[in-house]
Write a protein that binds this DNA or RNA. Structure first.
Lengths: 312, 312
DNA sequence: TTGTAAGCGTTATCAG
DNA sequence: CTGATAACGCTTACAA
C-alpha cells in the first residue's frame, strides 16, 4: 500500500520512503499493472475513440488532437474504426465497453437504439463529435452540416449560379450538408441540380469520375459542389483536361479546407472547420467530467467559415 | 466458471447451458470486464501501436491497416504518438507497458538503450515497422530507406542531372534516404547538391518555401529531390509561379506516391511503398506470435518501386 | 505516515 | 460437461 501511494500520490508519503520505493522500482524493473489497478479502482485511464475511418483527411487531425490532449492529461487512447453504419458502430462499442473506458468519443449523433441504451446504462461520460444536435447522449463538440449546406447554397446563388452539379459521397454527414444545399437552392426559381454519387472515401480519381459522369448526358453546369476538397481538386483536374475554365465556365466548391485547397491553381473556395479544436475540446471535456469537475457547456458548436478563393 | 466458458469457448459447454447463459446476459445487460479477465489470464488482447505522428499521410494508412487486421483477429489497438525523438518514445512506451499489451508495434528501429532493455525484459512480441535492419528487437516489416535513396540517385543521374537541390525534412528515416542519395551522387564527377531543410511534418507551403530558399542564392539547379510528395507538389507550385518548367528546366522528385502524385500536372515521379501491407503484415505477425504460432520470416522487406511519371 | 484486510471480476487448475 | 477454490496485482477503507 505504501508503494502504491509512493507511486501515485508521493506527496502524502515521507520523502525518504518515496526514495526507497523508487530505488526498489529501479532495481527490480517494476512496471505497474494498470489492469489490476483499473480493476480495483474502477478507473481505467482509458478513453475509447470511435471513428468511421482513420485514414481520412478530415478525422485524422481530430484524432491527433484527441491523442495529444489525452496524453497531456495522463490518459491512453483506444482507437476503433466503426465504418459508416450504425450497426457496425454498435457492435464495436459493445466490445469496447468491456475495457471499462473512463470515457468515449463517438463520431456522429446517429446510433442504434440498443447502443444508446447500452451507453446510457454504462453511465460513462460520452462526447459526440463532428455533428450537432440539441439532444446529445451526453456532451458534444461539432458543427451544423445543414448550416454549412445553407451557406454554400446562398453563396453560389449570390454569385449568380443556377445549374448545379454535385459530386458527393454518401456518408451520413455529407448527406446533411447536401440537404442544407437543396433547402436553399430549391427555393430559387429556375435553379436545378444533378448529382454524381461516388463511393466513400473520396479520392482525386473519384472527383474526376464524378465530373465526367455529370457531363456524360450533355447537360450544362455552371457550378460543381463537392462533398470534400479532394473531390473538388479531382473535379478541377478533370475540368482542366476538358478545357473548362474554372471558375469562369465552371465554379467549383469544396469542403474541409485541406492543406492543398489554398495552394491549388485555381485555389479552392471551400468551408473550413477547426478539426483540431473538435479533438482538443472533446478530450478536455471528457477528462474534466471524469475527474468530477462540472462541464459548464456540454454542447459546443465550433462553427465554420466559408473561405472564398478563386475556384468559386 | 461455466459462464466464462460459455462466453469464451462455447464449444466445450452444453448447448442448453450456453443458451441459459446467453439469456441471463441479455436479461441483466451483463458486460464482461476485460480488465479482470486480462489480469487473471495474462492476456489483454491489446496491441500498443507507437507512431511519431498520426495525422501524417504516410503512417495513417499503415495505422488503418493495423487497426483493420487487429479488429478482425479480436484485438484492440492502443494508439500512441511518440513524436520524433527516441527519448519521448521511451517514456511513452514505458507507461504503455503498464497496460500489459500482448504486443507492440514500434515505428522505426532506433530506440534508447533503456527502452530496448525494458522491451526485451517484458518479453512480449514486438514488430518494428517503416525501416529495415538485420537485427530487429524481435520482428520487422519495412523497407530500406538507403536503397530508396540509391535508386533515386541513380535514376536522376541516369537522366543526366547533376545540379541537385534537396527539400528535406529532418526526421530519422528521411535522413537515411538522403544518405542513400548522397552515396550515389557524390561518386559522380561534377555533381553537387544543396539542401533546404524544412520542419516536420511537411506541407505544401513548406515545399514552396524550400524551393524559394534554394533559389535565393542565385544558384542553378536541374533537379529538386523532396523527402515527400507533399513537398514535391509544393515545389512544383512554386516552380510554376516562377515560370520554371517542370520537368524541362527543373526535374522534381517526390516520395510516397500519395493519391495526388498521379493526378498533378505534371504528375509526380516518386517512390511507392505499400503502406497498407506494412500494417497488415505487422498486425498479422504479432497476432500469430502471440497465439503461439511460429512466424517463419520475422523480417519482411516489402521493397519499393520507383514510379516514373512526368515531373522527373 | 504506514500498515492490514478485504475485494475488484475474471481465469487456471483441479475435482467431480 | 460443470463446479469449487485460489489466484491475478492492485486500491479502498480503516486501523495503528
Amino acid at each position: 500500500m505504501t508503494v502504491s501511494r509512493a507511486l501515485n500520490n508521493p506527496k502524502i508519503v515521507r520523502a525518504e520512503t518515496v526514495n526507497k520505493v523508487m530505488e526498489a522500482v529501479r532495481a527490480t524493473g517494476y512496471i505497474p499493472n494498470m489492469l489490476a489497478g483499473g480493476l480495483a479502482s474502477r478507473r481505467s485511464k482509458l478513453i475509447a475513440v470511435v471513428v468511421p475511418q482513420i485514414n481520412n483527411n478530415m478525422f485524422v487531425d481530430t484524432i491527433q488532437a484527441i491523442s495529444d490532449e489525452l496524453a497531456a492529461r495522463g490518459y491512453h487512447m483506444l482507437l476503433c474504426v466503426a465504418g459508416d453504419t450504425n450497426e457496425s458502430e454498435a457492435e464495436i462499442v459493445a466490445t469496447l465497453l468491456s475495457r471499462r473506458p473512463d470515457g468515449i468519443v463517438l463520431t456522429g449523433i446517429h446510433h442504434t437504439p440498443e447502443l444508446k441504451r447500452l451507453l446510457l446504462n454504462a453511465t460513462i461520460p460520452i462526447v459526440e463529435i463532428w455533428d450537432l444536435t440539441p439532444t446529445p447522449l451526453d456532451m458534444l463538440v461539432g458543427f451544423s452540416h445543414e448550416s454549412i449546406g445553407n451557406a454554400i447554397g446562398h453563396y453560389l446563388l449570390g454569385k449568380g449560379h443556377s445549374r448545379f452539379g454535385l459530386v458527393w459521397t454518401e456518408d451520413a454527414r455529407a448527406g446533411l450538408r447536401k440537404k442544407g444545399i437543396y433547402d436553399v437552392i430549391q427555393k430559387q426559381q429556375g435553379s436545378h441540380a444533378r448529382e454524381a454519387i461516388v463511393p466513400w472515401p473520396a479520392t482525386l480519381a473519384l472527383g474526376r469520375q464524378g465530373l465526367s459522369d455529370l457531363l456524360a448526358n450533355g447537360e450544362d453546369f455552371d457550378a460543381i459542389i463537392c462533398s470534400s476538397d479532394t473531390l473538388a481538386q479531382g473535379v478541377m483536374i478533370e475540368a482542366a483536361a476538358r478545357g473548362l475554365a474554372v471558375p469562369k465556365t465552371l465554379a467549383v466548391m469544396g469542403f474541409g479546407d485541406l492543406d492543398f485547397a489554398a495552394h491549388c491553381t485555381p485555389s479552392i473556395t471551400t468551408v473550413r472547420v477547426d478539426r483540431w479544436k473538435i479533438g482538443t475540446d472533446a478530450a478536455a471535456m471528457l477528462a474534466e467530467k471524469i475527474e468530477g469537475k462540472s462541464v459548464p457547456s456540454p454542447i459546443v458548436d465550433i462553427g465554420f467559415s466559408l473561405i472564398e478563393r478563386e475556384s468559386a
